[in-house]
């Protein structure tokens, strides 16, 4: 079986279990949708990063700046050369989101635990409520890396130049029947639909039932053969607020080896509310279906 394009980035629960105490060089980070889940019990020696309270600026709709990022890392005992292993709930959505933010600020050694929190729990592995403390790290953050983040004007240019956009939301959101995922109505938008020309490839197609990623062959069958994407394509992925598309960004970049994938974190909560931009409604048009056949 072919291995992933960058197999070293994905680690197993076994690997994490073996490295729990390598805290001088490795930091395990839990990142969940639920703000309280880490407190109910987490992998021993894991620290918590919350996507709202830690990674997002509370005033500007944006990520924290590089100074704040460096401070966050130092508080968690993360230095520039620390290997950071991410895991979390919801098939690793927020772990991928945190991973992406770390890459945005140029952190080199980022790993993801395949299967996330659920797999660790289902395997009956140890959890603790003990919050670890580590010696303060020393961190110099880099400026955000624009090669993995897309803004709305870049999305407009993508439409004009017919470059691939991947909508990873549920089919009903894509068609414009609903403006949010079932269960997340707060994250709505004024209009329902998708960015013109975007392919519909729900994020969940890349995941197995147990939250692990599908094999290289299965992923290639979906993204390459079925959807017609090519590893040298300039791809922008989006969802509603940028977390599910972080998952797809991870799949395309590290598992399939695409070298130009950007996450449009403004996503549908920006595009669906933006004045003066076009949207499309309904199922993929026949031309797109043909192109992706």
């Amino acid at each position: 079986m072919a291995t992933y394009a960058h197999p070293e980035v994905l680690v197993s629960t076994d690997w994490v279990a073996e490295h729990l105490n390598d805290t001088d060089t490795i930091r395990i980070v839990e990142s969940d949708e639920d703000v309280l889940l880490y407190e109910t019990g987490h992998i021993p020696n894991a620290v918590k990063i919350d996507w709202v309270n830690d990674l997002q600026d509370q005033i500007v709709r944006d990520y924290i700046g590089k100074q704040r990022f460096a401070q966050l890392c130092e508080e968690l005992g993360i230095s520039n050369d620390t290997t950071v292993v991410f895991y979390g709930d919801k098939s690793n959505w927020w772990a991928c989101y945190a991973f992406w933010v770390f890459r945005l600020f140029g952190h080199e050694k980022c790993l993801l635990m395949d299967g996330g929190r659920k797999k660790w729990v289902d395997e009956g592995r140890p959890l603790t409520r003990e919050r670890p403390t580590f010696a303060r790290g020393s961190y110099t953050a880099k400026d955000p890396d624009p090669s993995i983040r897309a803004f709305r004007d870049e999305v407009l240019r993508h439409i004009e130049t017919n470059r691939p956009l991947v909508d990873v939301r549920s089919p009903a959101e894509y068609r414009g029947e609903v403006t949010h995922m079932p269960g997340y109505p707060q994250e709505g938008a004024l209009r329902g639909g998708h960015i013109p020309g975007a392919r519909s490839i729900p994020w969940s197609r890349a995941a197995n039932e147990d939250g692990t990623f599908k094999s290289r062959e299965e992923l290639e069958a979906i993204y390459l053969q079925e959807q017609g994407l090519k590893p040298d394509d300039d791809v922008i992925a989006y969802c509603r607020i940028g977390e599910r598309s972080s998952h797809t960004w991870f799949v395309l970049t590290y598992l399939l080896g695409f070298d130009r994938v950007r996450n449009y974190d403004g996503s549908w909560t920006e595009w669906g509310n933006l004045v003066g931009v076009p949207i499309e409604k309904g199922a993929p048009t026949p031309a797109e279906a043909e192109a992706s056949a």
Partner: peptide
């Protein structure tokens, strides 16, 4: 604590 995105439920 939750941010706007997590309060609706």
């Amino acid at each position: 604590l939750l941010g706007m995105q997590r309060t609706r439920g």
